[in-house]
């Protein structure tokens, strides 16, 4: 396998170079997408399938869709004069400094982490069998709550800035049959990932990203028309997940005295309910980020 590892490592750097160096926006985004997929493969090789799933679904998939949408709005790259030599030299110096710092941090981080053993020891009381979900939704649920709030803030920003909605051009007669197969599969897969997250790699972020991918397919083939009412419903769905998470935090504080300290026997139910709400609201948020929120369509 070392050949495979070397290929993924050099491939990721090569794709990053394409993403940074390409003269064409779409080519640069293609490089970024490929880098996401190669990095996802690298995460699989590192034994972190949860991260790989999230990287493939959000990092490579939906971010790519968002970037392509942005590229279509700002138009092609204007040929610009190369930056001044002093600017390039200082950028190179900064990059070298950052690389040096990272190398120093990496070299200094000796010894195995203490967390895997701790998580393994108390996995039984978390209510789920997947250590990643146990950390995200139980031991460190507070961090996850704040992460979800970040998404809600992004949604509010999009609503405040009101970028024009996209009105996709008709894409021909092949797209609707494609969506008829892909969208149901995306819904099934999202449910599967959500349910699986309790025991195996999966969970709300991955399921929400897959669901949002299906919604983007529907939006692009013109079935999910961004009307006033759907926009409002999507915004409510997007904010419902964080709201439910906060309510759960308050409820657990009232019930057990600890914030997000679930009642012992029912931990799995709490986690599944929170994750289900999060899946829907992550999907709605990502879809709204793609679609634009307010204003005239164009």
């Amino acid at each position: 396998m070392p050949v495979f590892d070397i290929l993924t490592a050099t491939g990721a750097v090569f794709c990053a170079a394409i993403a940074l160096g390409a003269r064409d926006r779409v080519a640069a985004i293609a490089g970024f997408l490929l880098m996401g997929l190669v990095v996802a493969l690298a995460w699989v090789r590192l034994g972190a399938p949860d991260v790989a799933l999230a990287e493939a679904a959000i990092g490579a998939g939906l971010t790519g869709a968002l970037l392509l949408r942005g590229a279509a709005r700002i138009g092609p790259l204007e040929p610009a004069a190369p930056p001044a030599r002093a600017l390039r030299a200082s950028a190179a110096l900064l990059a070298l400094g950052l690389a040096g710092l990272l190398g120093w941090a990496f070299a200094g981080a000796g010894g195995a982490s203490v967390y895997p053993a701790l998580v393994r020891a108390s996995l039984a009381e978390s209510g789920v069998g997947n250590p990643v979900t146990a950390v995200l939704l139980n031991f460190r649920a507070w961090d996850t709550l704040l992460e979800v709030v970040v998404l809600a803030v992004a949604l509010l920003l999009v609503a405040a800035l009101a970028p024009p909605r996209i009105d996709p051009a008709p894409l021909g007669e092949m797209v609707l049959p494609f969506a008829r197969v892909v969208v149901p599969v995306a819904v099934l897969l999202a449910g599967h990932l959500l349910w699986l997250g309790a025991e195996a790699p999966g969970g709300a972020f991955q399921a929400g990203a897959v669901l949002a991918g299906g919604a983007v397919a529907l939006g692009l083939c013109g079935v999910l028309r961004p009307a006033e009412r759907t926009g409002a419903a999507l915004r409510i769905a997007g904010l419902a997940g964080p709201a439910l998470f906060v309510l759960a935090a308050i409820a657990t504080a009232a019930l057990t005295g600890g914030l997000l300290d679930y009642p012992a026997a029912a931990a799995k139910t709490w986690i599944l309910v929170i994750e289900s709400a999060l899946t829907l609201s992550i999907a709605a948020t990502l879809f709204l980020l793609f679609l634009g929120s307010e204003g005239k369509s164009r």
């Binding site: 894409l171 021909g172 494609f178 197969v181 892909v182 599969v185």
Partner: peptide, 20 residues
């Protein structure tokens, strides 16, 4: 089988879209 089906139909659709 799911992977192959998805790759098959998305490949065909994408080919059509790019050609279009």
């Amino acid at each position: 089988v799911l992977c192959v089906t998805l790759v098959g139909i998305s490949g065909a659709t994408l080919g059509h879209l790019i050609a279009r």
